[in-house]
Design a protein around this nucleic acid. Sequence first.
DNA 1: TTCTATAGTTACCAAAAGGTGCGTAATTGC
DNA 2: GCAATTACGCACCTTTTGGTAACTATAGAA
Lengths: 131, 131
Amino acid sequence: MATDLTEAPFTSIPDVFDPACSSRHALELIASKWAMLIISALEEGPMRNAALMRRLGDVSQKMLTQTLKELERNGLVIREDKKTVPPHVEYSLSPVGRSLSETLLVLDRWAETHFGALDAARERYDAERGK
Amino acid sequence: MATDLTEAPFTSIPDVFDPACSSRHALELIASKWAMLIISALEEGPMRNAALMRRLGDVSQKMLTQTLKELERNGLVIREDKKTVPPHVEYSLSPVGRSLSETLLVLDRWAETHFGALDAARERYDAERGK
DNA sequence: TTCTATAGTTACCAAAAGGTGCGTAATTGC
DNA sequence: GCAATTACGCACCTTTTGGTAACTATAGAA
């Protein structure tokens, strides 16, 4: 019997360009300002809610909680609730999360290195076309 | 006269965690599903509008144009209009864009490598707590 | 007794991202 | 003359993201 070429092969090579591939969902999860910054921040060590808020500078409580929950759900972040009163909750990177943070730090450094070029290009662009 | 410590120093070290720092804006620009995929795709060589749509799989014409314009505005992508009819427009990476694509490809490979772990963690998480 | 501290949750609202469909220009092939 | 082609722009609508403010629990300090 002939191979059915109309269907995807049983095992296919993961491809972020394939909208149906699960790796695409993984990419979408981290393609977010807050997710990137949180993971980068946690690379410096475990942190509590208030410390993360201070580190990120302008995140709202809501977005922080929301993003942390998604990262925990996907196994990138570990949440440890010490179950005390007042509450004491610590967030840290899982091993998978740590494997990601290395790359994200490279991205951070890219931004810190090249933002000047972007600023200049933007100014030139806006000056030429009608502001 | 004493140094005014209430204001940022004249030249400060760029920091993506500082909401006021321009490098933070640079990070936000690329912290987007479409921006990431477009830059990764263009790493394979210059492409026309239709080719990019095919490569990204499920991007709408509107989002593709919109994102390309922002990337061009910030100097990451070069747009070459051959001014023919029917139109022929080619998009390619600028040198700065190419310096970014290297890191983004590492991110793509991370997603393609670890998506299984994320899937498993998500399933576990959803199984434990109320679905 | 009342106030403070911590890490949330919820409801409500505003803004941004994103999708769909329609219109457009002018040359080439039929 | 007519249709197809290509890379959009624009208007309208829905969905997602994000912000604000009010509320929760309870030990310990004042």
